[in-house]
Design a protein around this nucleic acid. Sequence first.
DNA 1: CCTGAATAGCTCAAGCCTAAAGTATCTGCC
DNA 2: GGCAGATACTTTAGGCTTGAGCTATTCAGG
Lengths: 154, 154
Amino acid sequence: MDRETRVTVDDHRALRLWLRLLTCSQLIERHVRSRLRGRFGTTLPRFDLLSQLERHPAGLKMNELSRLLMVTGGNVTGIVDQLVKEGLVERLDDESDRRAWRVRLTRAGDKAFAEMARAHEDWVAELLAGVPRRDSDALMQLLARLKQATLEKS
Amino acid sequence: MDRETRVTVDDHRALRLWLRLLTCSQLIERHVRSRLRGRFGTTLPRFDLLSQLERHPAGLKMNELSRLLMVTGGNVTGIVDQLVKEGLVERLDDESDRRAWRVRLTRAGDKAFAEMARAHEDWVAELLAGVPRRDSDALMQLLARLKQATLEKS
DNA sequence: CCTGAATAGCTCAAGCCTAAAGTATCTGCC
DNA sequence: GGCAGATACTTTAGGCTTGAGCTATTCAGG
């Protein structure tokens, strides 16, 4: 196999890996979305945002949320607006920077999230129940390396 | 470790796997989206639809596209409408079913897609260049099994 | 102190996506 | 043939997401 053919083959390999990754991701995502809607009348983005806030009890600035969720700032604005309206989240003035907010879970938000998180975890565990532990350990490692390699190129 | 604790640990394992999968998928997806927009002024959904049509030169019905792309029918309607307007795709009457269309690439669509596909493959290959062949082979296999296990639960 | 660049956040238009409801057609069964 | 249910597709309302452009604030150098 000459050099050019090899390049092409490797290109295909990368492409097929990406497509398969996407398929797996979408399969799980659709499942979770559908259940979040059906059981809690909410959406994945809202859930993800609450989830980040739950991990950071002191609150997060809008741009920190934006970075963690890997979405644009405008998007975060919209979702936070909704969650504030629903009483799950509050915007506090940032003491040290008058441009910024500190967004935090309200008590109601914390409670609502806890219930959703439990269910969410169950759904995912059930969906992936057929994946043997050996596979999932291996996947965690390989995906960590893939993530690292990708980040270095981004 | 008693049974209940084990369940919880496995739940966390599944959850963490799903989150990592999602992160990897999003990293690549954002990269590709941004380049499709920048270089070709198009979007990933449009590209995916063209890609399916390219694999099926005889054309596909709307519901086949819907199934292959894992999106709803209404969504496919919208994207096909756009691609028709742009002249990349054509809707032909299905001979055997007057409710259905047969959607096909036009010559212009075929040409445009070929160029995008080449670039797309290069982007992905470059982004994943740091993933050793051994890793990517292993990932392909493991993800195939994960996909299978997930499909059986859906 | 001032001023220009950087940063935090918001708004807007446009496109993606879904679920639900609606129309047209097909198919199987009597 | 005719009718009931299934199927193919479209439409609509509502939410997500982006990129671009906007204001207000901060910060660093002169």
